[in-house]
Design a protein around this nucleic acid. Structure first.
Length: 428
RNA sequence: GUGGCCGUAGCUCAGUCGGUAGAGCGCAGGAUUGUGAUUCCUGUGGUCGAGGGUUCGAUCCCCUUCGGCCACCCCA
């Protein structure tokens, strides 16, 4: 290997052939579920004005303070590679009047996000999310729909048993502010008993202290102010409505009063799907309600709920659980080999088959070579069948077919019958 | 940003108490001029992550640096 070889940047990964098959499988399953619920795709730019993220995510969050890929372009404007999708989505919806006058929208997007963090398992500097955002719907039924939708996805992906839904409500901004003040009062008096990180969070993001992994801090929190005493009535009703809907549909959840979420814009419902299959990065999908964000960003007050899931994390899960179906790795149905003398006839047969079967995945051997070599290529191609053309077959208008998976007897068919026979085999 | 572990062939790893390296798998060819996945034979494989220091001599010891993995912080 060359020493001065240029390599991919830290935390930015190539998705190689084979891996990409799994990505396409996952994306396909997600799209199928989204289609089933009538959600529409929206595609936003990957780069935005830096201020968009500062305004939406919150100036004092870690994302904005130290994790953004921010640079000046040639016109000296400050631009940022998006660290998440919600801000861009809200911007696009407002800019194009998609949510004017509380018009309802159910939207999704998929693509790369960028955060300058130290990579570790399930966390990369360029990572990929599938995000879902809904606008114009204030009642808890849409919160429930989103959760039910993800629940259905886990079932489709066969990972349902290994993910747990954690649920909480953050209440109204007033309730949250009151609670935050009380919490800060309580903890400030006991500051010396807090772990170092939590002491810092006391001034930056006190609610996050609830999330602390430090045992002593958690013990201290047992006697701290309880959010139940601060929650506003409307949020409490919203939450119980959501719970009733999930109960009715049979989606199980765990109430986690200490689930807070890092971004400033969340209020009322927050949820996370977590797993212990992935080491430290156990959150596979997370979201919540952000009724205040659209207005905060200069639009009209518009209720909104959404979530995002991490594609890399889901793929790690699929692999950890061995939940990738066999057929996903196959990318060829038929591998066509031929003797050099009839290679042009093979081209003609391939063209004919492709015309008759638009969905057929047919790969042709190129460059001739010995039959042994061609068959070896066929075997490695993931094809189920090798189609063999030699002078004998051409003389009889036939094609020989070998099943590469089981050791069935090789057969010969008339070339005209091949398409029908294949259709039968591949749909069986 | 902080901490721990690790960098030897395409991959997984061994090794040299300091004398410029080896296995398995893979890959290529052949046994088998119309047949893969099994078997057998042959071949291909490396500036031992990079730079510097000590030394007659460094892949090995020391320093620096880069990269990877995992964890903290934080998040999908």
């Amino acid at each position: 290997m060359a020493q001065d070889q240029i390599k991919a940047l830290t935390g930015m990964n190539d998705v190689l052939p084979g891996q990409s098959q799994v990505w396409r499988y996952l994306e396909g399953q997600v799209k199928a579920v989204l289609d089933g619920f009538g959600y529409q795709e929206i595609r936003m730019p990957i780069v935005e004005q830096t201020n968009l993220f500062k305004r939406s995510i919150g100036e004092v969050t870690d994302i904005v303070e130290k994790e953004m890929y921010t640079f000046n372009d040639r016109s000296d404007r400050s631009l940022t590679l998006r660290p998440e999708g919600t801000a861009s989505c809200v911007r696009a919806c407002d800019e194009h009047q998609l949510i004017a006058n509380n018009k309802r929208q159910r939207l999704w997007y998929m693509g790369p996000m960028f955060r300058y963090e130290r990579p570790q398992k399930g966390r990369y500097r360029q990572f990929h999310q599938i995000g879902v955002e809904t606008f114009g719907m204030a009642s808890a039924d849409i919160d429930a729909e989103l959760i039910i939708m993800t629940h259905q996805l886990w079932q489709r992906l066969n990972i349902r048993e290994k993910v747990t839904l954690e649920l909480n409500t953050l209440g109204s901004s007033e309730a949250r502010a009151n609670f935050k003040a009380a919490l800060v009062d309580y903890l400030s008096e006991r500051k010396d008993q807090l772990d170092e990180d939590s002491q810092r969070r006391l001034s930056t993001n006190p609610l996050r202290i609830l999330d602390s992994k430090n045992a002593q801090t958690q013990a201290l929190l047992n006697d701290a102010p309880n959010f139940q005493d601060y929650i506003d009535e409307e949020s409490a009703e919203h939450f119980s409505h959501l719970r009733a809907l999930l109960d009715a549909v049979g989606v199980e959840y765990v109430i986690n009063p200490r689930l807070v979420r890092g971004l400033d814009y969340y209020g009322k419902t927050v949820f996370e799907w977590v797993t212990n299959e992935l080491g430290a990065q156990g959150t596979v999908c997370a979201g919540g309600r952000y009724d205040g964000l659209v207005e905060q960003m200069g639009g009209k007050a518009t209720p909104a709920v959404g979530f995002a899931m991490g594609i890399e994390r889901l793929i790690l899960m699929l692999e950890a659980m061995d939940a990738v179906p066999e057929h996903v790795l196959s990318y060829v149905d038929v591998y066509l080999v031929s003797e050099l003398e009839v290679a042009d006839k093979a081209m003609v047969l391939a063209a004919k088959l492709r015309e008759q079967m638009p969905n057929l995945r047919l790969q042709m051997h190129m460059g001739g070579g010995k039959m042994k070599k061609q068959m070896k290529q066929a075997n490695e191609s993931s094809a189920r069948f090798a189609f063999i053309l030699g002078e004998n077959e051409i003389a009889n208008g036939q094609v020989s077919i070998k099943d590469l998976r089981d050791n069935a007897e090789q057969i010969s068919l008339s070339q005209d019958e091949a398409a029908n026979w294949l259709t039968e085999q591949l749909t069986a």
